[in-house]
Design a protein around this nucleic acid. Structure first.
Length: 418
RNA sequence: GCGGGUGUAGCUCAGUCGGUUAGAGCGCCAGAUUGUGGCUCUGGAGGUCGCGCGUUCAAUUCGCGUCACUCGCCCCA
């Protein structure tokens, strides 16, 4: 093992793995486009305040997971741990919300200082969508439908379920929080140590604790429905109806909460049974309070994010690359003609392999390993005849082809196999 | 940040109850095949046995530490 290593929790991407990532991103981008989303790319770092204020001081992300550093001017900057705050900031500072709603898609790296695990890295990649300036439940429905279609088109359906909940508006959330704390205070003795600390700063989180003792307490806990005001109840009912209209199956999970403070109303999560401890594959919700929290105007929003690494693990193999054409010169006299031929075929849009050196046998072997569909042989015979030998590498059959007809011939074949 | 497991060739793995030149399969390179790949045969390259320290006449093997990966917890995509 050489003494030169990548930073812990970072991965080099290449070959098949990178192709899988690109496939995930391209598929999601295409589905987002169908839904009328435009792409946005924001910087991978922001002033630390943007994240600190949006995530809430009590969240673990802020408390211990951010990559924060001072630049040479003494400003505190942070590598983005997620992208919603950055997108909202970009929309506010760029004045992009001229005619709401604004529908945005993004893809890129995120950074969290965590203990790496399967499907969890320190530099990881997310795709996500945000709808800004829309307070209507129809936006929530559209966003969920978009997420489902992305998973479907990636072939991620086995063991995947959609869970949904509501956190209500701020008033309802506050009321529920108070009710829940009152109940949990009465059962302190049965709560785990982790949950006792959460009781102080993030009691909703206790609801999705994995501790068995906690679960027994939680099973009897009051549910949010009894704390929802009328507006919140109507909103959630509209989302549920909207999903039902589209035939999108989901299960109500009263214990689905979000760790991040800015979430209101809808919270949802597509989970997979095939990811070990990291079951969430695509998750999001509504965050009407975020813009205000980071110092912007009132601006409702709803969106989701999904980890590309996790999606890539679950998705089927990406479509294969188009098979190349190998140009194989035979004899020194043909080298120059082969280079010119490859040049012309490439300019005509063909994927062409031409080895820099080697005997015909070696070059054929290389063509085979590159999974080439055809070998175009050019040697003294061909040069004197003024034609080329086209060898079908699947069948071994050869035929003479006029040079002028070659490009069209190859293009026709490619069109047929698509 | 906490607890468990693993670390031998590019990949998947044997092996060494501490002993001299550490193996296999696949992959790679070359030859058989001086105008032709896949199959076959032959040969070859490639390892400070993750790294460091310790114990020992001797460590890839034992101990400790460290790094990485991995499973779970916390949290989250």
């Amino acid at each position: 093992m050489p003494d030169i290593r990548p930073v812990r929790g970072t991965h080099d991407l290449h070959g098949d793995e990178l192709r899988r990532h690109r496939h995930v991103t391209a598929t999601a981008a295409a589905v987002a486009r169908c839904h009328g989303f435009d792409e946005i790319a924001t910087p991978i770092f922001e002033f630390t305040d943007i994240f600190a204020r949006s995530l809430g001081d009590t969240s673990d992300v802020v408390a211990k997971e951010m990559y924060t550093f001072e630049d040479r001017g003494g400003e505190s900057l942070t590598l983005r741990p997620e992208n919603t705050a950055g997108v909202v900031r970009a929309v506010v500072s760029g004045g992009l919300l001229q005619s709401p709603p604004l529908k945005l898609f993004y893809a890129g790296p995120m950074f969290r200082y965590e203990r790496p695990q399967k499907g969890r890295l320190r530099q990881f990649h997310q795709i996500g969508v945000e709808v800004l300036g829309a307070a209507e439940p129809a936006a929530d429905v559209e966003v969920v439908a978009l997420g489902q279609q992305v998973l479907e088109q990636l072939g991620i359906t086995r063991g995947v379920t959609l869970e949904i909940n509501t956190l209500g508006d701020p008033e309802s959330r506050q009321a529920y929080r108070a009710t829940l704390v009152r109940y949990l205070e009465g059962h302190k003795a049965r709560l785990s140590a982790d949950s006792l600390t959460r009781l102080g700063h993030n009691p909703l989180r206790i609801l999705d604790s994995k501790d068995e003792g906690d679960r027994a307490v939680i099973a009897e806990a009051p549910i949010i429905d009894d704390s929802l005001n009328e507006a919140s109840r109507d909103f959630f009912a509209a989302v549920e109806e909207g999903l039902a209209e589209l035939g999108i199956a989901c299960t109500r999970n009263h214990k689905l909460v979000r760790g991040l403070d800015y979430y209101t109303h809808t919270a949802f999560e597509f989970t997979s049974t095939e990811l070990g401890a990291q079951s969430a594959v695509l998750a999001g919700g509504r965050y009407d309070g975020l813009s205000r929290a980071i110092g912007g105007p009132d601006m409702p929003g709803v969106g989701w994010a999904a980890g590309i690494e996790r999606l890539a693990m679950l998705t089927a193999d990406p479509p294969p690359l188009p098979r190349p054409v190998a140009v194989v010169p035979i004899g020194a006299a043909a080298e120059s003609a082969a280079r010119l031929l490859a040049h012309e075929l490439r300019r005509a849009g063909h994927r062409v392999e031409l080895a820099y050196k080697g005997k015909p046998g070696q070059r054929m072997k290389r063509a085979d390993r590159q999974n080439a569909r055809w070998a175009v042989l050019i040697g003294e015979d061909e040069l004197s005849r003024g034609s080329l030998t086209l060898r079908d590498l699947d069948t071994g059959r050869e035929q003479a082809v006029e040079r002028i007809a070659l490009s069209t011939r190859l293009a026709d074949d490619a069109a047929q196999t698509e």
